[in-house]
Design a protein around this nucleic acid. Structure first.
Lengths: 202, 202, 202, 202
DNA sequence: AATGAATGAGTATTCATTCAT
DNA sequence: AATGAATGAATACTCATTCAT
């Protein structure tokens, strides 16, 4: 092997633990995702190894969120960027998010569970909310969206999206079913927000 | 003797424990709502008493949900019944639900937390979902609602409603702010679902 | 059994745990006195029982100190009170403290170890130091003691006393040897502090 | 090649680790001086290095004691040797020991903490005790000291000295305050032990 | 000679549940 | 019907030590 970075093993273990943690959270939920379970999932003989690699549970969780966001960002961002106009981008976001269930089901479920349970503290939650709000505000200014309270709508729509995604992930549907689900939800959201709903049609 | 139905709060102690549990869950969240805390809140000196009255944590939780639904149902049902037409009833439901934050803040927060953490198992969730679905189906047949996948929309809208309610409960807003919030969200949902959005306006 | 207080069992357990803790601390030292060891010594099957009866390690430790001080106070106070004059009381204190090794060897060793390791935080340490300082100050005013820095001397003499006591406790000497030791040390301290050393002779 | 004695700090690494350990013990105390902390202080990336160089924690501790004694011996010995007569040498020892707080505060605090926690096992303690005893015995034979139990007095005085030193080290006093403290304590000890206290006055 | 990953027992504390009284 | 003591497993986290590289 050529010039492998020396931190390979270390970062390999970290990645392995993060992956295991994501799977466990997706499986049993944030609340029951103990170091024990994660260690077992990762094939480690003790929880000490996790503490060795991560400063604490928060640190591990943060690493999970970062990993998931990287993965999901790589999947979603191109699809969102490909859309033009505020309404079309909203649609693209929703469809990409639902489509992700087919690609990274564990990551999707885990992220939503983490976000749900760390409530206000998480950067991720507030981050996404803020992005939605800002998108709505800009779209309203451009006349693409109705006039509505951006914060309330952002909260309602992101939560609804998460719920649909989580339900879908549990059912493990095929890709066609998933894209139908995505379109269905996107239609709903466009009707709810677009000044002229026809603008955002696929 | 006529079989008088034994309500879920068959004895005074049970009711007392259930009420304490709801308060604790509302206060510290489902995850940290231990028997210890609940016993303390209920003025009991031992957790054994809880185990004595309830088969387990799940049993207690179920009793909490039942109690909360009774309370909230009593508040919401009249308002929903007062509305005429499918769209108007959807609006009434949403507004009543948001308004409830001002009336029974602990019950509202506790219920959502329980539902969130017991995920798919809960009867309550599925019950409400089924009601929404059925309402949408009937409304579609009557031409009041758009054509859409009732299940997906039910999931998205109930989750969004919960999120708004929970956010509102955390902020402890005044009654006028609450009714504004309710109208805002109801508007959104009517736009999203009504065949002719104007039909459901207040 | 007649009218036993209802808290008997509970307080009995507490006392039992405190006694076990004192023995363990005397045996293996403060640092290694874990809940595990204490539970084993107390014949408890788990450490949970200790946490059940005490708010934490500090609480248990405080209870130990209180228990020890009660025991030792009961032993020493009469002997100190029986002495007249500042110098004689110093002598009485020293001799009583050394004599206690024969009566409550574990308590003595445990107390010193706790005091040593909780350093500045402990009320007990500073309390005894303050008592010594005040005794010296009063004695100086009365012309019984030399002129010296009361704080420094208090620190040196209490530490020396503790060291002698601990050493003696480890050797498990007989009562005559103990009283010889006490006299020896009292002589030293009287010579070191008394304006006229002869005043304090037994 | 001539057998050049391998000092206890045989290699640079060993010395580096010992120095780090002393600093850590002085900083956080014996109880919390873990290999982790020491490795970090020494700039080592792993605790394995410490285990590699030392047979165990005891071994490392022994090396620390040896190192400290070398350092402190170099400071104190000339001052002691400069004094003439048994009483004067006792005074010189006490004053030099207290003065050392200003010169090697870390070494002083670390040594006392190690000695305190390794109790009777330590060679160092017993070594110093033996030196004191022997000094007292010789002084008694020469008529310089009172007649007293040399062992008991040695224990009491060394412990008292340590306590004063440790208290002083915590307060970080200036040099004049330190020398006052040293004189104060030396006075006390001379009064306690000298056949004719005036003999040993500075 | 040195590294850093791995181990496994250790820490205090909390938990739901059981049981004799 | 109720108490409160007891249990034993679970929690995250730290420790000194070992070992292959």
């Amino acid at each position: 092997m050529l010039m492998r970075a020396r931190t390979f093993t270390e970062s390999g273990r970290r990645a392995q633990i993060v992956r295991a943690a994501i799977e466990v959270i997706a499986d049993v939920g944030y609340a029951k995702a103990s170091f024990s379970r994660i260690a077992k999932q990762a094939g480690l003989s003790s929880t000490g190894m996790i503490s060795y690699h991560f400063a604490g549970k928060d640190d591990l969780l943060a690493a999970c969120v970062a990993e998931i966001e990287e993965v999901t960002g790589a999947f979603m961002q191109p699809r969102i960027d490909a859309a033009e106009g505020h309404v079309a981008q909203l649609r693209a976001y929703v469809e990409a998010n639902v489509a992700m269930v087919g690609e990274h089901p564990a990551a999707v479920r885990a992220l939503i569970d983490i976000v749900k349970n760390s409530a206000g503290q998480s950067v991720a939650v507030n981050g996404r909310l803020a992005v939605f709000e800002e998108h709505f505000r800009a779209g309203q200014a451009a006349g693409a969206f109705h006039s509505f309270d951006t914060r309330t709508v952002a909260i309602a729509l992101t939560a609804g999206l998460d719920a649909v995604v989580v339900t879908a992930a549990a059912a493990a549907p095929g890709p066609t079913e998933l894209s139908r689900l995505g379109r269905e939800l996107a239609d709903l959201y466009v009707r709810a927000t677009a000044a002229d709903p026809k603008e955002g049609s696929a």
